[in-house]
Design a protein around this nucleic acid. Structure first.
Length: 187
DNA sequence: CAGTGGATGCTCT
DNA sequence: GAGCATCCACTGT
């Protein structure tokens, strides 16, 4: 399964399948361990209600980045998924840091490795992802992706930090990973 | 540990 | 003017 094939499928298949992939930005990054799925019919999604303003990228081709600013301060990165125009995306919530740890620390400040990429805002800060990457293709530099050597064991849980449709179990994590944005780990 | 509140900017009403 | 897919520092046990 190539990355392009993966992201053009249903977001509910693509989200868990993205776990275990290694994402690098200019050589800095790690293994995806936590994601959330969003789709157009989902009241919690930025694409809810159709293409407008900032969400235009979500209705473009899959495999591109949708980057938005949260609470005025933090950038958050999504992978556009599904057939082009369907308004679905996968929010990247946590990575296991593998490469460029010193550059991550320089961007984030001195921190335990545990907190470098544990959360959508932290992950973007550590990898240097910002609004200038909104709409960028993930299969082009400075981005690179490598498939997992073996598929990780996946658990589904409710999504984090939203008020609408909060009960939908569309957060997917690598079971037992020490790098998740919040514990305790799901059973 | 858990719980609280401030920072900060963009979109939509 | 309200609300937000967040993070951090601070408080009290």
């Amino acid at each position: 399964m190539t990355f392009a094939q993966l992201v053009e499928g249903s977001v509910h298949d693509a989200a868990p399948a993205l776990l275990g992939w290694t994402l690098l930005v200019d050589g800095v990054g790690g293994t995806i361990v936590e994601v959330e799925a969003y789709e157009e019919s989902d009241p919690a999604s930025h694409s809810f209600g159709g293409p407008r303003g900032r969400n235009a990228v979500m209705f473009g081709p899959p495999g591109h980045l949708y980057v938005y600013r949260s609470y005025g301060l933090h950038a958050c990165a999504n992978v556009v998924c599904g057939p082009a125009g369907t308004g679905a995306a996968v929010l990247l919530r946590a990575l296991g840091p593998l490469h460029g740890l010193e550059r991550m620390r320089a961007r984030r400040g001195v921190e335990p490795a545990r907190l470098l990429c544990a959360g959508p805002g932290r992950l973007c800060q550590a990898l240097g992802i910002g609004a200038e990457h909104d709409g960028a293709a993930l299969e082009q530099p400075p981005f690179s992706l490598q498939p997992p050597s073996a598929p990780p064991e996946v658990a589904a849980t409710p999504r984090v930090g939203i008020t609408k449709a909060a009960e939908r179990p569309w957060r997917y994590v690598v079971r037992g990973s020490p790098w998740l944005s919040r514990g305790p780990r799901p059973a």
